[in-house]
């Protein structure tokens, strides 16, 4: 349990902090080729244009959120390999595991003859895949906006650009629906969302912060501090968050941290603890954020009832 929590936290940090150049728009460029089968041009986080002759049929995903994005867009059967952390949807568990971001196995990836690889900008494997002329996209959303773009890029790669927008609207609508169920007493409450015990927080500039904001919640970490900044433990004690959200394992040990018993949110149990599977949905920048929003609201409603 504890180990699982720690591992998940590590994965989250991995997923959350790798991306670098996410601020500008990795938008797709409309295919302009005048040939019979129009080629598909995709622009990734590196502002690199990757051209596919046909929609991708054999996809390797090296990031859990990309795996989930592909599957949400109905491309699950086109995945031929995933990284060792991808675990949703359950059917990807059967696929070959190709290592992580730092130790992706080039040869196994190439042997699977993929026509598209989804990685992140800082993965060393990208350089090799480029040299081997295997189409590879660096996609690592940090904000909700990035998630929308990633959905569109992947949908375009799958040959159905409209599906990306549709999936985005579905996701966005579910977050809005969840927001309407947030009890009024919880609106505007300042939250602390912990992604690792270093402690790293999900700030207002991250996709987690975006979802919280759409739910009407505040954040003790302003966007100016970065998406997932490392905080001093004192910062959190001084900020006195009104709600603390973290993995179940992390929440259990929080009262043991020096000075943290002074956090009124901890004393009054205004906390949301998430088990590993639920936590994954919260910290993976993909379509499952819809479920994450529901989970958050569920917890907020419980807190509201306890208060009465």
């Amino acid at each position: 349990m504890q180990a699982a929590g720690v591992r998940t936290a590590g994965t989250v940090l991995a997923a959350a902090t790798v991306g670098l150049c996410m601020a500008a728009a990795p938008a797709m460029i409309p295919a302009t080729a005048a040939t019979t089968a129009p080629a598909i041009d995709l622009v990734d986080d590196r502002s690199r244009t990757v051209r596919l002759a046909t929609p991708a049929r054999r996809i390797v995903s090296l990031l859990p959120s990309s795996t989930e994005t592909v599957c949400a867009l109905g491309g699950c059967d086109r995945l031929v390999g995933v990284d060792r952390f991808s675990n949703w949807p359950p059917q990807v568990e059967r696929l070959p595991r190709l290592g992580g971001l730092e130790d992706a196995q080039v040869e196994r990836i190439v042997a699977l003859k993929p026509d598209l690889v989804l990685a992140t900008s800082s993965a060393r494997v990208l350089e090799r895949l480029d040299a081997l002329r295997i189409p590879a996209l660096a996609l690592e959303p940090k904000t909700l906006d990035d998630i929308r773009r990633a959905l569109e890029v992947v949908a375009t790669a799958l040959g159905d650009p409209a599906a990306g927008q549709a999936e985005w609207h579905r996701l966005s609508a579910r977050i809005d629906a969840a927001a309407r169920r947030v009890p009024p007493s919880m609106r505007g409450q300042r939250a602390y969302f912990e992604v690792s015990s270093a402690p790293h927080a999900a700030g207002a500039g991250s996709f987690v912060g975006d979802v919280l904001a759409r739910l009407g919640m505040g954040n003790i970490v302003p966007a100016s501090m970065g998406a997932f900044p490392k905080l001093s433990p004192e910062y959190i004690v001084r900020a006195q968050p009104q709600v603390i959200l973290a993995s179940d394992a992390a929440l259990r040990e929080m009262p043991k941290r020096p000075g943290w018993p002074a956090l009124s949110a901890l004393r009054d149990r205004r906390t949301c603890a998430f088990l590993p599977n639920a936590y994954d949905t919260l910290v993976r920048p993909g379509p499952r954020l819809a479920e994450a929003a529901d989970l958050l609201v569920e917890c907020l409603r419980t807190l509201d009832e306890a208060r009465r």
Binding site: G19, V106, S122, R124, K230
Partner: peptide
């Protein structure tokens, strides 16, 4: 800039695979 930490970790892990 915490993003750099993960990138450094990835880049400097002793690896001959790439």
């Amino acid at each position: 800039s915490p993003e750099a930490m993960r990138g450094k970790q990835i880049f400097l892990l002793g690896s001959t695979g790439f």
